[in-house]
Amino acid sequence: MYDDIRLAERTDTMTDVKIAARNVNVHYGDNHAIKDVSVDIGDRAVTSFIGPSGCGKSTFLRCINRMNDTIDICRVTGDIELNGQDINDKSVDPVQLRAKVGMVFQKPNPFPKSIYDNIAYGPRIHGLARNKAELDEIVEKSLRRGAIWDEVKDRLNAPGTGLSGGQQQRLCIARAIATEPEVLLMDEPCSALDPIATAKVEELIDELRQNFSVVIVTHSMQQAARVSQRTAFFHLGHMVEFGETGQIFTNPQDERTESYITGRIG
């Protein structure tokens, strides 16, 4: 149903820079995983990171909301600024940062709680609702925006783990937007899903662009082409090329990008 590579609608103005990363390096013990990466991520746009396995794209993504803090042997250097503030600054509370920069993971990971409690979890810990009615409202709104409301509205008290894989992933996306983040990081959100569920999630990502800055890591070049406005290509820890998605896919500047896109490396 898609053409070979259907390029996403180009309404990219790229005026506001939401996240600016400069000379980011990441070490896992002795392993130098990210080498000198600099990138600007725009507001209200989808940016995709592509590249072969182990190229560091997920690692870089996890730097943006400091999820790498949870790994003992991981060291991050360089500047990453969100709205002009250095997120690695000592005075920044990673908890507050993560409330602004939400994350969706590769494998759907609903909590073993009810659907309602899964969504309400973020608003509850961040104190976004003053009372039960407000919370109900947030839950409904998030589930609607996660394009899953119609499927679960009759069983909000059923466990989230009982949903199908695609539903679980949309639940996790809804859970992430319930905290009203400014940036949404998605780490291969469709890798565990079948094509139909993938299509639904992709549609959802396109809608989310209206309100959020979305960063998506993906293995699938088609997916990057379909959903993103800007694309960064990672290879062996380096960011090789970064530009408008159309540009990257039709006229790559770097030899390695071209080899990857045409299927010679990867």
Binding site: L82, N83, Q85, V95, Q96, A99, K100, G127
Partner: peptide, 22 residues
């Protein structure tokens, strides 16, 4: 509600976060 989150600065801890950190 969006205002609420936008208003938060990353370096200035609001009272709620302070309580949570405590």
């Amino acid at each position: 509600m969006t205002d609420l989150t936008q208003a938060r600065s990353l370096t200035e801890l609001d009272p709620r976060t302070k309580k949570r950190n405590a």
